[in-house]
Simulated assay, not measured.
Amino acid sequence: MRDTPKETKAILFRQADRPQLYREVAQFRKALFSDQLGWILNTENGLERDEFDTDMTEYCALLGDGELRGCFRAIRCDRPYLVRDAFPGLAPAEAFPADVTAWEISRFGIHPESSGLAISLYAAMFDFAERRGARALPALVDLRHERFLQRLGIKTRRYGEPRPVGRDVRGRVIFGVAGEIPIHEQRRRLGMLFSVPRSLLEVTDETTFGRLDRVSA
């Protein structure tokens, strides 16, 4: 494991806020999810993106010593989002939230040489949830990621049972489960996770939400 970078920063943004950073995130996603993990995704010109990467989609870029080390995508659930609209068979329709207090998290990943920053990316995710007043973070995760969340002490709630969601480039079946991280059930764990942004991680919100927050403050 490489040493954790001394300067770690998370930037929350939309495509229009940081077009070059968005391009770097899309390149990072292709290198990580498509090239390394072998997921079969939409890629073009070295970028990975799909129909859920819209002008309203929000992103987190995790930078370590100025280099992109991790990312995630966030979509408010009153809009189309990945797990509900691309994988509706994973759970009953009524299980998927469709309100402004739920934000789907997808394309969550860390550079393989920066695994020590995983806790910082989770901290940035919970910081994002607090900024948006989110009650839940829905997601589609594979079973290994679900087990990792449990080892971290992060509580999750399934919408349905694990099912095949596709195959990778080697033909291996990928099993996924639809569910959420209920924010109100994380209070004990959030105390530790929120301490990471305050002490080790600078979080900058460059979205419309963030600008409104700064103006109103």
Results as ranks from 00 to 15, higher is better:
115 S>V: 15
95 A>L: 04
122 Y>A: 12
122 Y>P: 01
107 R>N: 13
73 R>V: 01
125 M>I: 07
110 I>A: 12
127 D>W: 12
72 F>S: 08
80 P>Q: 03
101 T>L: 09
105 I>N: 13
135 R>N: 13
125 M>R: 04
81 Y>P: 03
81 Y>T: 00
105 I>S: 07
130 E>P: 02
103 W>H: 08
95 A>C: 08
99 D>K: 09
100 V>N: 10
120 S>M: 13
108 F>P: 01
107 R>D: 05
114 S>R: 14
121 L>P: 00
75 I>Y: 13
74 A>M: 07
83 V>A: 12
121 L>D: 10
93 A>M: 10
125 M>H: 02
118 A>I: 11
111 H>S: 15
86 A>S: 09
93 A>I: 14
97 P>E: 02
68 L>E: 07
114 S>E: 14
133 G>T: 11
114 S>V: 04
93 A>R: 11
98 A>V: 13
91 A>P: 08
115 S>R: 15
121 L>K: 00
94 E>I: 07
99 D>N: 12
92 P>H: 03
76 R>H: 06
110 I>G: 00
134 A>R: 02
90 L>C: 04
106 S>E: 14
106 S>W: 12
120 S>Q: 15
73 R>M: 03
135 R>K: 15
97 P>K: 02
83 V>W: 00
84 R>Y: 15
100 V>W: 11
113 E>I: 00
71 C>A: 05
80 P>E: 01
83 V>Q: 01
79 R>A: 13
110 I>R: 04
131 R>V: 02
98 A>M: 06
131 R>S: 12
104 E>N: 02
126 F>N: 07
84 R>F: 05
98 A>I: 10
104 E>G: 03
69 R>Y: 14
129 A>R: 05
130 E>N: 07
91 A>S: 01
101 T>D: 15
123 A>P: 08
120 S>N: 15
77 C>Q: 04
71 C>Q: 09
113 E>T: 14
78 D>E: 13
114 S>T: 13
110 I>E: 01
98 A>E: 01
72 F>W: 07
90 L>A: 04
69 R>P: 00
125 M>C: 08
68 L>W: 07
127 D>H: 09
132 R>S: 11
87 F>G: 04
101 T>K: 14
116 G>P: 02
105 I>A: 11
109 G>K: 11
125 M>W: 00
103 W>V: 03
103 W>C: 07
72 F>E: 00
79 R>F: 11
92 P>F: 07
135 R>L: 10
126 F>A: 08
76 R>W: 03
114 S>H: 12
122 Y>G: 05
92 P>T: 01
